[in-house]
Design a protein around this nucleic acid. Structure first.
Lengths: 347, 347
DNA sequence: TTGAAAGCGCTAACAG
DNA sequence: CTGTTAGCGCTTTCAA
């Protein structure tokens, strides 16, 4: 049996004073060892560690937080939806947070609206987090919360009254542009766009990227079809678009919407990609295995989470120093089978 | 501007003593109001609430935790993968935890192996959670951790040395059985099985369900093909199975594997569902929109999370009383387009 | 390099 | 119904 496991469960949990007694040092020295502070003799350090192991000692974080005013925890306001994108981002954030030596508190806000976010941030701050990350909120309205800790917005602009707000984009604009250009390069005269809910910042950003790509090629800009990220909304959009023979290429702001869209198109007799090309957005791995395999742009979730947490932790720990900027996240177009030249290729 | 937002950020945060002073009561009365304890006059309650609002008071959870020995938080050990299943479960857990008046701490263990789980539980307990939920771990080996708080295993058997371990299944056995029976009912002579990694409890449970369904109908049991939950592993399995003409029906232990499987089957010239029927497992919504739409069984994530958290909270708050058992989670077969009678239907 | 004393902000137990 | 008195277990001074 491993050391420290043998403590009988009815004896009270050991405290730092117990460790100090067994190790023959003061409580402060125990504290120094536990916090990796300098000015502790190797000998004392060894004895403390041995005593802690022997006693099965576990530091009480609540007491530490109360005494130090810091919790070494970060709170995240996540979207309470289980899509590939948001779930991936959350997993990456957890990983980055843990690697930075912090722990994670999570609150979901199903709608991502300002009030929900405000309430979530409020509860996180009450729990004493050292920093907050807000993952892809909607953009309408300001978030009416006073935060004393740094707040990181992942994939959205600051709209917050906080000690320090940070923003890390997920390169959505550029990804959308690359997706659209891919279609244009194939020879399509223009590209239709199936967006997410326009209240969402993520939707606006992607829409702007699409618009910029069109403008750069002097392509006309067809009306936007608005979805809600769900495959069902993509399906509905597909039925609408299928009846318009001028539609030969569509950029969907999410992979799941793209899948619904393709399904409707094919049901209506429009072949994909022979008659209509479709590009998704996210890079969901499983859609490499559907028919046709989905061409998409991969969101750099890991890079965004790492860079965001790096900057957040920096703001927590050394608010007055500068942080060297990070390299831009990779922009990755994944060409699979859902895109092809238009039916009457004039290229 | 809302009340309480105006506090200048350089003045120190108000404490309960400040609220008490402004309200003209003792600190204990403030505490009573904040904790919804009885024996406070309405008048005093109003004054306390007003003072708290005016001051922008926020309770310090670290201090409360230290004084009371409880944190009102629950830790969850999650699988660090972003599949639909695990992500959904996590979202449901968060929701159930919040509804119960607790907050959530999350630690991921990419592999779900005992050591990883042990470390995760250890760190959670150190952070002072009142209870732990371990979501779908693998089964091999015991988890060498001594937990003083109740531990809930969601979808796995107890293998833990804890004050109290609870288990809530996700009806995987029965769901697997229903999926298999659906295929048998269609007239298939037997059903092949593409499992998850056999080290995982979730895989074993589904495998048992499949096996039970086969045995009940005196169907022969073909060798199991083992995947790793990924669509790529489903694809590999599909290439293998495609070359065996006796394969007319496959039950895949996960939707994503089923998608990969179908892709390989069709590439090899086996039509789905005309030549081979495939049933998935999870109920992923988007796969209603692929070709063919995937027949699957829906996992009762919400019911499992709610029931699990209900029992965990009960174990935390009233460990000595009994809890009325919950009704069984619903078993839902979602018949879509990937299943049909076998090619030479003898039914 | 080490230790003694003084809290951090809250709730528990008990008395009114 | 309300208040008083003690801590919870740690880190922070500050002095040795």
């Amino acid at each position: 049996m491993a050391p420290g496991v043998g403590r009988t469960s009815d004896s009270p949990a050991p405290r730092s004073a117990d460790v100090a007694r067994v190790a023959g040092v003061s409580r402060k020295t125990v504290s120094r060892v536990l916090n990796n502070e300098p000015y502790v003799s190797d000998d004392a350090r060894q004895r403390v560690l041995a005593a802690a192991g022997e006693l099965g000692y576990r530091l009480n974080h609540a007491a530490r937080a109360l005494a130090s005013g810091r919790t070494r925890s970060i709170g995240v306001v996540a979207l309470g939806t289980a899509g590939y994108g948001t779930a991936s981002l959350l997993v990456r954030i957890e990983h980055a947070v843990r690697d930075a030596g912090y722990t994670l508190r999570v609150v979901n806000t199903p709608d991502g609206d300002p009030e929900g976010i405000a309430g979530a941030v409020e509860s996180l701050i009450e729990q004493g987090v050292d920093g907050v990350v807000v993952s892809e909120p909607v953009v309408e309205g300001e978030v009416p919360v006073h935060a004393d800790v740094p707040v990181l917005f992942l994939g959205a602009p600051p709209a917050f009254d906080a000690a320090r707000t940070l923003t890390v984009g997920v390169a959505a604009h550029q990804l959308a542009r690359v997706a659209t250009e891919h279609l244009l390069d194939l020879g399509h005269v223009t590209v239709h766009h199936l967006s997410g809910p326009l209240r969402w910042y993520a939707s606006k950003d992607r829409l702007e990227g699409w618009r910029a790509a069109l403008a750069a090629r002097d392509a006309s800009e067809p009306p936007v079809v608005e979805g809600d990220w769900s495959p069902a909304s993509g399906y509905a959009a597909g039925r609408e678009l299928a009846s318009d023979p001028s539609v030969t290429a569509v950029f969907a702001a999410g992979d799941e919407m793209a899948i619904g869209l393709i399904h409707a198109l094919r049901e209506a007799g429009r072949r994909v990609p022979e008659d209509v090309s479709v590009v998704g957005f996210d890079g969901t791995p499983v859609f490499a295995y559907v028919t046709p395999p989905l061409t998409t742009v991969r969101q750099p979730f890991d890079a965004a989470a790492r860079e965001g947490i790096r900057r957040l932790v920096h703001a927590i720990e050394k608010p007055d120093t500068d942080l060297p900027p990070a390299s831009d996240p990779p922009v990755e177009l994944v060409v699979r089978g859902s895109t092809a030249p238009p039916p009457l290729h004039q290229g």
